[in-house]
């Protein structure tokens, strides 16, 4: 059966991203593995948003990812600092739960 709608499905979009990234990461710079994971995290928050599972803190994480993701291509040090901040923010969310 031809399923034309599946390509618009947010879960399927993430699935495609993960599979093609898994292959791509084998040949690409090591740091790009991290880039794909953090990109996938933002995409996951998108899905959680549609499903009504997001909180303001989670949306802030997504905003931070969107604003800083390109650092990986321009400034490795700043990219890693951004990830450190992100992990800290995540820990705060977990702690307060």
């Amino acid at each position: 059966m031809k399923n034309t709608n599946i390509v618009k499905d947010p879960h399927f979009k993430l699935l495609s991203f993960l599979i093609t990234s898994a292959r791509g990461c084998i040949d690409e710079p090591q740091l790009y593995g991290s880039l794909r994971l953090i990109d996938a995290a933002a995409r996951l928050i998108d899905i959680m948003m549609v499903e009504g599972k997001t909180t303001e803190e989670l949306l802030n994480l997504k905003k931070a990812i969107e604003e800083n993701i390109v650092l990986v291509m321009y400034d490795e040090k700043k990219y890693i600092e951004f990830l450190d901040r992100l992990v800290k923010d995540l820990a705060k969310i977990i702690k307060s739960a």
Partner: peptide, 15 residues
């Protein structure tokens, strides 16, 4: 548009 969206699905580096 549909094909662009399909290519996006398989292009992790396309923003």
């Amino acid at each position: 548009r549909d094909m662009i969206d399909k290519i996006k699905l398989v292009s992790p580096g396309l923003f």
